[in-house]
Write a protein that binds this DNA or RNA. Structure first.
Length: 927
RNA sequence: GCCCGGAUGGCGGAAUUGGUAGACGCGCUGGACUUAAAAUCCAGUGACCUUUGGGUUGUGCGGGUUCAAGUCCCGCUCCGGGUACCA
């Protein structure tokens, strides 16, 4: 039989499905291993050839682990709520559930064709009520907990209420919004409503007025990670800052733990670095500045309290509440104008315009606590409301932004730090601020002459003694805005009584997404859920109108896979204790600041409340590189319908035009198909080189509009899934980005055919020999086992593919078709090319799936050599090689090398200065 | 601006601890088989020089350490990613 991949692959898909070959259950006799893929959002475009890269890698590893005796959990599901389906629904009226369903069907078909070893019985969809019941459940838990700083964990809100009743909030050390101090008695005298409002300041899921990223184009607020360069990541719509009452998750409570625990994780350094920067820990002090003519204080955060003597002005964010209070009548108009101008500008405009200095004096003055001098207070949009206190003390001498501002408004500049070896100079002569990371203090009262780090400590002590400030750690990580004014998401399990939110009873979950007549906001500007009939409790109390964001459903999905059908819990204790955590997670870096932060946070919370046994969800994580597109170009001669081949294009004035890569093979255009591709080209003429049309190419994003999308279905149709799998791996290291180039796939396909032929004679009849293998044959096998084993554990799958090719070439040369050699080789290759492996395994007479075989062990004894071919070099340049026994002495090796006739030529009668002999490595002769 | 990666033939890439640079594959060239094509197989293939023995040179650029550097150190250039008035 020929290698008929179509028949073979279909046959095994059916069989694996029917036999549930990859179904797993808790098995206490086997060690567990959990391999997870980042589940896809099922878009309308289907999978392109870049998507399965990570899935193939994780599948290889899963199959390898099974062969190594592990009980492997390897699930797949769909991140099914999301904006694209809803945008499509708005345009077409088609319910997003229908589009999503259709897309999922297509995704699943495509995935199944590639032959992944998923346990499909564990498939989940975030939009399924059975699933989002638990998303809602976690939300309620977040709502019913607060973060106790003393215990460094989440604690039930009921404990907090007990505390309040007994002794008020004075001793409570919580992560919370600013709350007035009250006694137990005062608490007890408050109304239910007052109490609930206070509790919202403490809850881990809370409703509050916050500055949010409002995206008018999408009609919803967005979290920080959903905004890039001032526009929405999805859709690219401009984003503006707006104050709105929104649900948020108090992820900032976990900032320190999220940062510290990165250390425990086997993630790439670059990914850890991205998270570190996103969390953005900075140490410094918070300090209060008294205001002139006011009984108010202005609080700032600074990493450099030691430079307070150099503070010559203050700057507030235009959005700050203080602005109104301190602005004098004289400057009222100007301030109002500036604030209005800032509000109007989108985030994008603000970012684009960082170089222009702008600001406005308020008329107010603060008192520098160190110098007692009056210093003017400005507002400027270079100070952000969202970071620190929304106010800064400006040290123009040592901060470049403050410096520019001071120059622009002609404010005084004082030098307070001088580097070792430098003399203080006149700041009026400076072109930029003076670097102050290291050095000694000057012009700074009691900290003069101290080194910077000591000066910082001493200043903080002073601030604390005088009660005007304290040491403080600040994080860049903001609480996650959790509401979206959209339809296609999880409804919040909440209703409102007198404007106060209360959770739905857990037994009433899920609160299902209602039907609406349109997926648009109402005329009053309320979210689409306001259109739903009876969107209220049985008592007639209204439900929340927002839905949850995209990351809600993906934040704990890895836990649900452990126990996907459980209707009593997100995951049972038993399942969680068996599967524990994800051992290997493969996915793209694009989730570094979103999903991977949120799910770590959810997991830590669930750990705190005792629902999961591990405080980190993803032990090891690998980022697969992006597969870029390789676009092809044709060159149209300007003003004609003539196309000139690549190397002749410089003789004409041409326009390069993207051409569908599927019409191009090895850069040669199929001119007939090109004519039919687009009516515009029906009459196209070609100027060829040696009878062919050569295309140009460029590496770009893989995208429909660039006509460079390659569909895995087409590859599978032409070459089979095993070829696709091996070729994707063969392209290069998993973690590197690389262009997809179908050129070259032939080599891998040829290899599989060669592999097939090892088991067949010239007439394509199955034929393997029972003879005992020779030492050479054993050596080829065991060398390969060793190499493959080593490559798999370091995820170097590209080199494994080469190793297989070398092995098959060598066995071919040896004309080896012996069972004892070939059977282990089939197991070895089965993680990479499971279909062909299963088929041959069966032909070899095995009744059980190769999935349950044992990974062969390599034996050192077959690899022992008794000679080593030494490269002999002169001054480091290799001149000849010399076969010498393994156990040769340095002296003898030296002698033999020098006696060699080629050595004589290079020595040219001279005595070598030195001979270096490294056993099993090299002989280097220095002359 | 700051922080992380990366740069090796015509192309994708290999070289795991400093030890024969270019494995493996594509492409290309030549050959075998064939009426022909496909498929398959064999040989060659970094550049330059060459008396065909070989020689010189070569891993983005410039220095350095070393018997020996793609690999380590210092200084650049370019490309990719992240992040950004973060106080």
């Amino acid at each position: 039989m020929e290698y008929n991949f179509r028949e073979i692959e279909q046959k095994w898909h059916k069989k694996w499905n029917a036999d549930k070959t990859y179904k797993v259950d808790i098995d206490n006799n086997k060690p567990k291993y959990y391999v997870l893929d980042m589940f896809p959002y099922p878009s309308g475009a289907g999978l392109h050839v870049g998507h399965p890269l990570g899935y193939i890698a994780s599948d290889i590893y899963s199959r390898y682990k099974r062969l190594k005796g592990y009980n492997v959990l390897h699930p797949m599901g769909y991140d099914a709520f999301g904006l694209p389906a809803e945008q499509y629904a708005i345009q077409t009226g088609q319910h997003p559930a229908i589009t999503t369903d259709k897309n999922i069907k297509r995704y699943k078909e495509q995935l199944e064709k590639i032959g992944f070893s998923y346990d499909w019985d564990r498939e989940i969809r975030t939009s399924n009520p059975d699933y989002y019941k638990w998303t809602q459940w976690v939300f309620i838990e977040l709502f019913e907990h607060w973060y106790n700083n003393d215990l460094q964990k989440a604690v039930p809100i009921t404990d907090l209420i007990e505390n309040f009743k007994n002794e008020g909030n004075q001793k409570v050390n919580a992560v919370c919004d600013e709350t007035d101090i009250f006694s137990g008695e005062e608490w007890n005298n408050k109304t239910e409503k007052e109490q609930q409002i206070i509790l919202l300041n403490y809850r881990l899921a809370y409703l509050a007025d916050t500055e949010v990223n409002w995206c008018p184009g999408l009609g919803t607020v967005l979290a920080n990670d959903e905004v890039k360069e001032g526009v929405s990541v999805r859709g690219g719509f401009p984003v503006v800052q707006k104050k709105m009452k929104q649900w948020s998750l108090r992820i900032s409570a976990y900032a320190e733990r999220l940062l510290n625990d990165l250390e425990k994780l086997e993630w790439s350094d670059s990914l850890k670095e991205i998270q570190k920067n996103w969390i953005g820990r900075s140490e410094g002090a918070e300090m209060k500045f008294k205001l002139k003519d006011h009984d108010l204080e202005m609080e700032v955060f600074t990493t450099r309290p030691d430079t307070t003597w150099g503070v010559t002005f203050m700057v507030l964010a235009p959005e700050s509440e203080l602005v109104e209070k301190i602005t004098t009548s004289e400057f009222k108009n100007e301030i109002e104008e500036y604030v209005l101008k800032t509000k109007k500008r989108s985030e994008r405009e603000r970012l684009a315009d960082v170089k222009t200095v702008s600001g406005q004096f308020t008329g107010g003055y603060a008192i520098n606590p160190m110098t007692n001098q009056e210093i003017p207070i400005y507002i400027s949009d270079y100070v952000l409301m969202g970071y620190g206190t929304g106010a800064i003390m400006a040290v123009p001498g040592h901060d470049s932004r403050d410096f520019k501002f001071a120059r622009h408004f002609d404010l005084p500049i004082i030098q307070v730090v001088v580097k070792e070896g430098d003399e203080p100079t006149d700041p009026s002569t400076w072109e930029d601020s003076y670097d102050s990371k290291e050095g000694e203090m000057i012009n700074s009262g009691f900290i003069n002459d101290l080194k910077v780090n000591k000066a910082i400590k001493k200043t903080i002590t002073y601030l604390e003694d005088k009660s005007i400030g304290n040491g403080k750690v600040n994080f860049r990580l903001r609480d996650a805005i959790f509401s979206r004014q959209r339809y296609w998401g999880e409804p919040f399990p909440l209703y409102f009584k007198e404007g106060i939110p209360y959770p739905v009873k857990k037994k009433d979950l899920p609160l299902e997404l209602p039907e609406v007549d349109a997926f648009l906001p109402t005329e009053k500007g309320e979210p689409p859920l306001a259109r739903a009939k009876n969107w209220q409790t049985d008592e007639g109390l209204p439900f929340e109108l927002s839905t949850m964001p995209g990351f809600a459903g993906s934040s704990a999905y890895y836990l649900r896979y452990m126990d996907p059908k459980n209707s009593d819990a997100l995951v049972s204790k038993e399942a969680n204790e068996y599967w524990q955590d994800v051992d290997l997670y493969i996915g793209g870096t694009e989730h570094a600041t979103g999903h991977l932060v949120y799910s770590r946070f959810w997991n830590k919370f669930l750990f705190d409340i005792g629902w999961v046994c591990k405080d980190e969800p993803f032990k090891k994580l690998i980022n697969q590189g992006m597969i870029q597109g390789r676009s092809s170009f044709v060159y149209r001669v300007k003003g004609t319908n003539k196309f000139v081949s690549y190397n002749l294009r410089n003789d004409f004035e041409v326009t390069p035009i993207h051409v569908d890569v599927n019409l191009v093979s090895n850069d040669i255009l199929d001119t007939e198909s090109f004519k039919n591709w687009n009516p515009e080209y029906n009459n196209a003429e070609f100027i060829l080189e040696d009878g062919k049309y050569h295309c140009g190419y460029a590496v770009e994003k893989m995208s429909k509009s660039l006509y460079n999308v390659v569909n895995p279905d087409d590859i599978i149709e032409q070459y089979g899934a095993d070829t696709l799998r091996m070729y994707e791996m063969f392209l290069g290291p998993l973690e590197m980005s690389k262009p997809w180039d179908t050129n070259g796939i032939d080599g891998v396909h040829k290899f599989l055919r060669k592999f097939w032929r090892l088991f067949h004679d010239d007439q394509n009849n199955f034929s393997i020999s029972e003879e005992n293998p020779t030492d050479d044959e054993f050596k080829v096998l065991h060398k390969t086992i060793k190499k493959i084993q080593e490559d798999i554990v370091r995820f170097s799958f590209n080199t494994s593919v080469s190793a297989f090719m070398i092995c098959v070439n060598e066995l071919n040369d040896l004309k080896c078709n012996k069972r004892e050699i070939l059977e282990p080789l089939v197991i070895l290759i089965s993680p990479f090319a499971p279909h062909i492996a299963e088929e041959i395994w069966q032909i070899c007479g095995k009744s059980e799936s190769i999935t349950f075989a044992e990974f062969p062990l390599y034996e050192e004894k077959y690899l022992v050599e008794n000679v080593f071919e030494y490269p002999v070099s002169f001054n480091g340049k290799m001149r000849f090689t010399l076969k010498l026994p393994m156990d040769i002495s340095a002296k003898e090796a030296e002698k033999q090398a020098l006696d060699h006739e080629v050595a004589q030529k290079w020595l040219d009668g001279k005595t070598p200065k030195k001979v270096i002999f490294v056993p099993k490595r090299i002989i280097n002769i220095v002359i």
